[in-house]
Design a binder for these strands. Sequence first.
DNA 1: TTGAAAGTTCTCCAAAAGTTCTCTATATTG
DNA 2: CAATATAGAGAACTTTTGGAGAACTTTCAA
Lengths: 200, 200
Amino acid sequence: MLTELEQRILDAIKLHISQQGRSPTLVEIGRAVGVASKGTLHRYVQGLIDKGQLVRNHAGWRGLQLVEEEIDDESGSLPLLGQIAAGLPIEAIPGHDKFNLANFFMGPDRFILKVVGDSMVDAGILDGDMVVIRHAQQAYSGEIVVALIDGEEATLKRLKYMNDGRVKLIPENSTMQPFVYAAQRVRIQGVLVGQMRSYL
Amino acid sequence: MLTELEQRILDAIKLHISQQGRSPTLVEIGRAVGVASKGTLHRYVQGLIDKGQLVRNHAGWRGLQLVEEEIDDESGSLPLLGQIAAGLPIEAIPGHDKFNLANFFMGPDRFILKVVGDSMVDAGILDGDMVVIRHAQQAYSGEIVVALIDGEEATLKRLKYMNDGRVKLIPENSTMQPFVYAAQRVRIQGVLVGQMRSYL
DNA sequence: TTGAAAGTTCTCCAAAAGTTCTCTATATTG
DNA sequence: CAATATAGAGAACTTTTGGAGAACTTTCAA
């Protein structure tokens, strides 16, 4: 179990690696999470390594690597036939013939919510859809997140960080307006990683 | 048997864990149930642990864990937390706490296609989405189907039977026009039963 | 080769959280 | 009425977490 700061530091490292393609320095982590002391940061990073959340590749600077956990499963597969486009025959996707439903959505720290309302229809998320959320305290600008406003209202919106430090929550619906909040009023509870819908 | 306050405290802990992904502090529990004294709260939490309703994971703060009632049936399940609507807290769905991804889409005679193109965006089916299709030769008017035109072109469209016996294939995209075909030119290959999208 | 940047190892500190007490009050029950 | 269970406040304490920074070593590029 990670403490809040450990989680935020891990999120910041993941964010940096996927954005920049290399691991951040201690000072860069510190800027992301608001900690000034290299020593403190080193203590936390070492703690994450000890807990198995990170590994060090001994390559000098920026030597942090994520541990990727793979999910192995064979149940829950359907044949993946190929691609379908308007006006063309179904085209096979080379190298893929089985599609594992579980792998598509399963992962650590995930949960499912049922969407109520039309605020994200322009992003293809309709009333009644199921969304898969990964627990997270941090998110990129532009991601769709579950955000808690003033500790009371939870909402699914696209997140944008503004230059003045505030946070914009954008409904993907042309009839609705974005809202802008002071950063401390918005707490991110999770990031959208998947969506599904049944037509039965 | 739990007293009223014990039950309320247990409920508050469960709610907090499922919403925030980690156990609450004593003070947070206190705010939720309206008790100011840490000591009192500790007494009750300890009582719940003694009664086997909770376990402590000895991880320092926020170290409370729920007791797993049943062993997880199948892989491919994620917790179904509840509903999310704009401007409201996450609302629990009574009686549902596990969501089986496989069950949601699995069924006989089904296969998966990857969608290419924007012809169904208004129905919430975007370029790159995966759709689950059930093999079928017939479909109801109004269903979304994979249709083969003249034995050559496959396409995903909404199906309408017209009064004159012809068939209308409607793209759910306001910039595109429906096409009408003689019934014998259109062969239905399958009916849309599900759709999913990954944001990773 | 050399110096700035990055990482490591410490010590110290403060706030937050948990723990252990005692004290009080209000029902309920034998 | 006395005994008991429940509900609550809060003081005093310990532990955990979060944070700063000095002093040091290592890495890497100019």
